[in-house]
Design a protein around this nucleic acid. Structure first.
Length: 706
DNA sequence: TTAGGGTTAG
């Protein structure tokens, strides 16, 4: 950047007085013209104006103009040399630092202001200082500024109070913000918007919507910022009804014309799964920016319509809008969710051509895409090419290893991350804890538990829930339950309940699991699909047939849920083990969607225990179609034939296997099969394999719920 | 001179 002395040669101010100079500076300040300010500054030096009697006033004006024009470096230099600094100039300097994101500098200057004793901070100073505290998440500093504002009589100023709301919300202190809000004599739309947005960002979308309703009821006029604050909460909660109401009101109040508001609307409809409405709003937009396009593309990706996403991306470029890093990250996540490696590689090529490979968003999306396509070598290669100083790429690679079932590798990387002094965050722990659960190693579980306590993460509900899962899988139910009890009652969420219920279930304590389930319902929490999987699984592990069936019915009639494949698997398993094979088969036939191999496998398992050839054949036939290469199914069917003495049929199954080119498993002869898989062992091994599959699903569902 | 707001990745 050229300084004032460089600008000298271009000087066009021949004869100019100090007052003319002041007027010009005011003009440059309003037009934010840094170059002109530098030129005029140079002129004041050469013309001797800065040596005159008015020099202090002129230097002060120059400093203010520089501050306005974002020439903060020059402003600071002049500011420091001034013999007297007006309160306005102090405020202006603090403001510029705060607004430019130089929060530490803003606070340092604020402290200097206090130390100089020249002026006391006023109703203009506090908002800038509080913004800086909020941006830095410096709660202690924010609180002492708050105290000072109260002590100096500015605590009831609307601007100061609104800034306090924002500062506390930024620092995650919802209750403190609420206390101030409750005590406000005069609330403006900004106060309401800050609360709505603050609750949403602090993980309380329901409260955000509540505040919005309260705002409307109290007669406060919503503005565009209200809309962009409340719509994400509707999208997050998939509350299409509320979203539509807001859309309607927006049209009535005419506060939805801004492009940012239209973008939020598209996003809300997309998140609520209403692609038609999202597209309608998108199509009706008079003006679209890259965010509009990216949001609409993201809506298609979210709703599993990758084809439309790609088509729209093409159209976007035809219309001359270039994708940005976020657009590419969205497209990469589409490739990841489809496991479309070829497409993902094309996108990678494009990233390189656009020279966007150094952007952390894109890097992370690439790592994730390769991991979801099961290409851990490429995923790792991209990871190694990043600077590895930020947390996010570490999270992506760790979760990639966990996703591919490589728990040990994930844990090694997690240890390396800590050695490299990269700070893990909530997402790192949510990714890594299931890896410890997979290991089911009590010593390792204790190690990670210690780490969580040392690093302060043990107070988070999600982390504790992860630990409950780990201790459960290690067979240490006592520790799991103690952890569960350590969660404050108000913070107990559906996921932590599901985890402890699953813990009891997987160790055959069905009664305790049901008891916990009832307790949970009594505490006012509504069970979700995952909770039902846990409790139904517990029933099938303990053989609680009637209870299981009761809960299954309750899920459908009382909670109006549509059972998923894993719920059917639990019930089929439950009935089949109890010998109620016909009922199990009837249930499969009544399923509203195509039964998956797990469901048929549960029936076949029951047929093995109860030596039922007829239903065994039906389920095996379906399984041979669905998973022709799964040797286990052939083994089980031949086991049934063997048990009833149908050696010829058993031989046929063996021949089928050979025709399929499947390798004979060691000992796959009927005589040997009997030895290897004698009945009790068989049941155990089946329990193991089915419960593993279910457990994985449970973990995945819980992660999705998180 | 002052306060609040949108899209993405784990």
């Amino acid at each position: 950047m050229n300084g004032p002395s460089q600008a000298l040669s271009k000087s066009r101010y021949i004869f100019i007085s100090a007052s003319q100079c002041g007027a010009l500076l005011q003009f440059y300040a309003t037009t934010r013209s840094l170059t002109n300010t530098k030129q005029l500054h140079a002129h004041t030096i050469t013309s001797g104006l800065l040596m005159s009697d008015h020099s202090a006033r002129l230097r002060s004006k120059l400093a203010a103009t520089y501050a306005f024009c974002e020439g903060i470096k020059y402003a600071r230099r002049l500011f420091e040399d001034l013999p007297y600094r007006s309160s306005l100039l102090w405020n202006m300097m603090v403001r510029v630092y705060s607004q430019k994101g130089l929060s530490k500098d803003a606070l340092t200057l604020f402290v200097e202001m206090l130390a100089s004793g020249e002026h006391q901070p006023d109703n203009f100073t506090f908002p800038f200082v509080l913004k800086a505290c909020g941006d830095l998440l410096w709660l202690d500093m924010g609180m002492s500024v708050h105290c000072r504002a109260l002590a100096t009589g500015f605590g009831l100023d609307t601007y100061v109070q609104n800034s306090l709301l924002a500062m506390y919300m930024n620092c995650g202190e919802k209750e403190a913000a609420k206390r101030i809000f409750d005590g406000m004599v005069k609330r403006t739309a900004v106060s309401w918007n800050t609360m709505i947005n603050g609750y949403f960002r602090n993980g309380c979308p329901e409260e955000a919507l509540m505040f919005y309703d309260w705002m409307i009821d109290s007669g406060e006029e919503p503005d565009p910022a209200t809309m962009v604050s409340v719509l994400p909460a509707c999208g997050y909660l998939k509350d299409l009804k509320q979203g539509r109401c807001i859309h309607e009101l927006m049209e009535v109040k005419r506060c939805g014309a801004a492009i940012s508001v239209r973008n939020s609307l598209v996003d809300m409809y997309g998140k609520c799964g209403s692609l038609d409405e999202a597209r309608m709003v998108f199509e009706e937009m008079v003006e679209r920016d890259v965010v509009s396009w990216t949001t609409m593309i993201g809506a298609y990706v979210l709703n599993d319509d990758a084809r439309s996403a790609m088509a729209l991306c093409h159209q976007m470029q035809v219309e001359g809008v270039s994708p940005n890093t976020v657009t590419l990250a969205v497209l990469l996540s589409a490739a990841a969710s489809l496991s479309a490696l070829k497409h993902g590689k094309c996108l990678h090529g494009r990233v390189i051509r656009c020279e966007l490979q150094l952007d952390v968003t894109v890097e992370t999306a690439l790592i994730d895409m390769y991991a979801k396509c099961s290409c851990m070598n490429l995923s790792f290669q991209v990871f190694m090419s990043t600077s590895r100083k930020r947390t996010v790429p570490w999270n992506a690679i760790i979760s990639g290893y966990v996703y591919n079932g490589l728990a040990r590798e994930a844990i090694e990387l997690f240890k390396q991350m800590r050695m490299d002094r990269v700070d893990p965050d909530d997402a790192t722990l949510i990714s890594i804890l299931p890896a410890y659960a997979d290991l089911a190693d009590l010593q390792q579980a204790k190690n990670i538990h210690c780490f969580l306590i040392r690093s302060g993460f043990h107070t988070r509900v999600k982390t504790t829930t992860g630990l409950i899962d780990i201790y459960s899988k290690c067979g240490s139910l006592d520790s799991a339950h103690k952890l569960f009890n350590s969660i404050p009652k108000n913070d107990n969420d559906i996921v932590s309940w599901s985890a402890i219920i699953a813990g009891y279930g997987m160790h055959g304590h069905g009664e305790s699991a049901i008891q916990l389930f009832d307790q949970m319902v009594q505490s006012g929490l509504k069970p979700n699909e995952v909770t039902f999987t846990s409790v139904l699984d517990a029933c099938s592990h303990t053989g609680l047939v009637d209870e299981g069936l009761r809960l299954f019915k309750c899920m459908i009639s009382d909670y109006h849920m549509k059972p998923r494949a894993d719920h059917y698997t639990c019930i089929v398993d439950l009935l089949s083990r109890a010998g109620r094979l016909k009922e199990a088969y009837e249930l499969i036939k009544a399923m509203p969607f195509e039964p998956n191999p797990a469901v048929w496998g549960a029936l076949l398992g029951g047929c093995v225990i109860h030596e039922n050839v007829e239903l065994g054949e039906i389920s095996a036939e379906r399984l041979f179609e669905l998973e022709p290469k799964n040797t286990g199914n052939y083994v089980l069917m031949s086991k049934i034939y063997g048990a009833v003495g149908r050696w010829d049929k058993a031989q046929n199954v063996r021949n089928m296997m050979s025709e399929m080119g499947l390798q004979k498993t060691p000992g796959f002869s009927l005589i040997e099969v009997r030895n290897v898989f004698d009945a009790p062992k068989l049941t155990t091994s089946m329990n193991g394999s089915f419960s593993n599959v279910r457990q994985k699903k449970l973990t995945m569902n819980q992660n999705a719920a998180k």
